[in-house]
Computed example of a mutant assay.
Amino acid sequence: MVKHHLFWPLIFLGALLVFNFIYSPDFFAIKMRDGHLYGSLIDILNFGSPLMIVSIGMTLVIAATKGVDLSVGSVVAISGAIACLMISNGDGSLVNVIISVGTALLVSLVLGIWNGFLVANIGMQPIIATLILMVSGRGVSQLITSGQIITISNPHYKFIGAGSLLTLPFSIFIVAIVFLIAYLLTRKTALGLFIESVGCKPTASKLAGVKSKTVMFFVYMFCSLCAAIAGLILSSNVSSADGNNAGLWYELDAILAVVIGGTALTGGRFYLAGTLVGALIIQTLTTTIYMIGVPPEITLVVKAFVVLIVCLIQSESFRKSIAFRWKTRHYPAEREVKQHA
């Protein structure tokens, strides 16, 4: 039970929730207002939806390439910028919104193909290949918005990030759909085995007939698509597109979510459910920091420190080292007996 990859993340998530309940007794309160559910837990799920979606895509990239996709934040900004620009220049009809959203998703697939080409065909290291798009993509998003914040007022588009379905935020259902698609593709088909084999032993996989380049293209396309969906949710939630700040540092939070969820950065075996838990931990931690009134200038420091503690506790080698030090300090005689033996 303790060795299960979800044990420590769930323990820490539970501890965060308990702390919030102690600090604010109405933290778990959920109210119905105008046919919609409201409350801190609902807000965590709603505001954490973009990060959960990006983290799902990042999980597959890390598993297959032993690298990361640093461009997801820029893709988030580009996606929102394209959609908002086209809607602002259009007639605001449902058809216009569908075309705008479809265009944003199509562009994200092209960006994923670009990353896959650099990694699979050119042979660049994933961190370098995606760093190129991370830097240039942020500039592209600002070119699309002309360096301004594009503000729109469209109920059809706003529904993506701020709408409700069955009393719950619609973004939660988007996360469920993306997770279900990723789960079915990786656990109910051979694709999951291909991803793990390419990430574990790329040379052996190639000799076994696995098309590693195709797998890499797929994971980068899927990751960019996830980032684009997250960009649509973020921009529709605030009815605007900010090419400079949208999705800023999302890549780092996504990597942390994947690692906290139990997926190793060395590639191979991955855990989609663990990634969702990791994303929830980060969003809950962010909510907690703001709730207790941590000064904005040290928010990131506190967040980094807590995440470091989580990763250390989750590390089996770290726990064994602490246990050994504690045992040798409190039972020195037993250590001497073992040494003489």
Rank of each mutant, 00 (worst) to 15 (best):
L45H: 02
H36T: 14
A208V: 04
G92W: 09
A83H: 02
T299V: 11
L118T: 01
P202Q: 09
G35P: 08
G274V: 12
V294Y: 01
S40A: 15
L51W: 06
Y250S: 11
S239V: 00
E336C: 00
N96I: 03
I53Y: 07
F28G: 09
K31E: 15
I128L: 15
V310P: 04
V54P: 03
G161M: 06
I87K: 07
T167D: 04
V119F: 02
T59Q: 10
I298K: 11
F19N: 00
A176W: 02
A29L: 12
I195H: 10
S224K: 08
K188F: 13
P25R: 07
V140L: 15
Y220C: 04
I255H: 09
W114P: 00
V107A: 10
F179K: 10
L234Y: 12
D253E: 09
G67T: 08
F179E: 08
V95S: 14
G116I: 10
G73M: 12
T167R: 04
D69M: 10
I195T: 11
S141M: 10
S100G: 06
A81Y: 03
F194S: 12
S224V: 09
A246N: 13
I289G: 01
G147N: 05
A333H: 06
T328C: 00
N154K: 08
T189E: 08
L248C: 07
V107F: 12
P25C: 08
V259A: 09
K201S: 14
N154H: 03
N154T: 08
G112I: 07
Q283S: 06
G80C: 09
G274A: 11
M86S: 04
L45P: 05
L41P: 03
K211G: 01
I298T: 10
K320S: 11
S236F: 04
S236T: 04
Q125P: 02
E196L: 02
I229M: 05
A129G: 05
N96V: 01
L60G: 09
P25H: 09
L252C: 00
L225E: 05
S146W: 10
Y23P: 00
P202S: 09
A63C: 10
K158C: 00
V54E: 08
K158T: 09
L70N: 05
T167P: 01
F19E: 03
V238S: 10
V2W: 14
S100D: 06
G261V: 10
I78L: 06
T299K: 13
I62F: 11
S146I: 02
V140M: 12
W114F: 15
I30V: 14
I298E: 07
H36C: 02
T186S: 13
I128S: 08
I195F: 12
W326A: 13
Y331S: 14
D242C: 06
I282K: 01
D34K: 10
C311A: 12
F318C: 04
L16N: 02
T186Y: 07
W8K: 09
I11C: 14
L131T: 01
V219F: 07
I132Q: 00
L308Y: 12
